[in-house]
C-alpha cells in the first residue's frame, strides 16, 4: 500500500497488520454499501404510476445485520487487544531495555541518558535536547513526563505515541529495527510553537551507539 510510513520498530508490523485488516474489511463494507446504494438509486428510481412496495421491515434481515457486525467487532477487539497490551501494558515491557528519561517542555524534548555506567540518577547522566540516540535491535524504555503542558511523544516510523502529562510519569518502550534517522514529533497541541517541536530519533548500530555514549561524557 505504501501510505503508512516505513515501519522501523518491532511492533510496527503488528500494528500495520491490524490497520490493513480493518482497511480491508471496512473497505469491503464501504464498497458493498455504496454499490448497493447506487444500484437501488438506479433500480428503484421513481416512475409515474408505480407504487412502492409496502414493507415495514424484516426481523430476519435486521437480525442478520445486527449479528454480522457484532461478530466482526469481537474479532477485531481481540486482535487489537494483543497489540495494544504489547505496546502499552506495563506487564509486557521488556526487561532488558536501556533506560532513558524524557521530559517534554514548551518546545523541546529533553532526553536524559544513563551515561557510561548505564544507571540513571547517577552523576554521569547527561541530557541532550531533541535528539534521541538509541541502538538498533535492542529495546529501549523510558519514563516520559512534562514540565509544563501536555505534549505527545510521536515517532511515526515506530508507530508509537504517548502523551506526556505534567505531574505524571508514563512508561514507553520501543525497539528499533533499522539504522537511520527518524522523525520525532509532538502530536498534542501544546502552545504557539507546537508545530516546531520536532526532534529526531537516531538509531545507531550497537558499537557505534556505545562509542557515541562514550564520547558524550
Amino acid at each position: 500500500m505504501g501510505w503508512l510510513p516505513g515501519a522501523a520498530s518491532t511492533y510496527a508490523a503488528d500494528l500495520d497488520r491490524i490497520f490493513y485488516v480493518i482497511l480491508a474489511v471496512t473497505g469491503l463494507v464501504f464498497i458493498g454499501v455504496e454499490a448497493t446504494l447506487i444500484y437501488f438509486l438506479w433500480k428503484y428510481r421513481g416512475r409515474e404510476g408505480r407504487k412502492a412496495a409496502y414493507i415495514e421491515g424484516s426481523n430476519k434481515a435486521e437480525i442478520i445485520w445486527t449479528v454480522t457486525p457484532a461478530v466482526f467487532i469481537v474479532g477485531l477487539a481481540v486482535a487489537s487487544q494483543s497489540v495494544w497490551s504489547k505496546i502499552k501494558s506495563p506487564a509486557n515491557f521488556p526487561t532488558d531495555a536501556i533506560e532513558y528519561r524524557v521530559e517534554a517542555r514548551q518546545y523541546a524534548w529533553g532526553i536524559t541518558y544513563a551515561g557510561a555506567d548505564g544507571v540513571l540518577g547517577t552523576e554521569d547522566d547527561f541530557t541532550r535536547f531533541n535528539e534521541m540516540h538509541v541502538p538498533v535491535g535492542q529495546p529501549v524504555s523510558f519514563e516520559l513526563t512534562s514540565a509544563d503542558v501536555i505534549h505527545s511523544f510521536f515517532v511515526p516510523a515506530f508507530r508509537i505515541k504517548q502523551d506526556a502529562v505534567p505531574g505524571l510519569i508514563m512508561r514507553v518502550w520501543f525497539e528499533a529495527t533499522e539504522v537511520g534517522e527518524f522523525a520525532l514529533a509532538c502530536a498534542e497541541l501544546c502552545g504557539v510553537a507546537h508545530f516546531n517541536m520536532g526532534g529526531k530519533v537516531i538509531v545507531h548500530p550497537q558499537d557505534e551507539f556505545e562509542r557515541w555514549v562514550a564520547e558524550q561524557s
Binding site: V33, L37, F40, Y44, R45, R47, K51, A53, I55, I73
Partner: peptide, 26 residues
Amino acid sequence: TMAIAIPSAIKVFNWLGTMWRGNLWF
C-alpha cells in the same frame, strides 16, 4: 466503543432497506 458500530450499522442498513423496492423521488 466498538459496540456502537452495531446500532450505527443497523441504521445504515435500514436506510438502504427503506430505499429497497421503493419508488424513489429525487
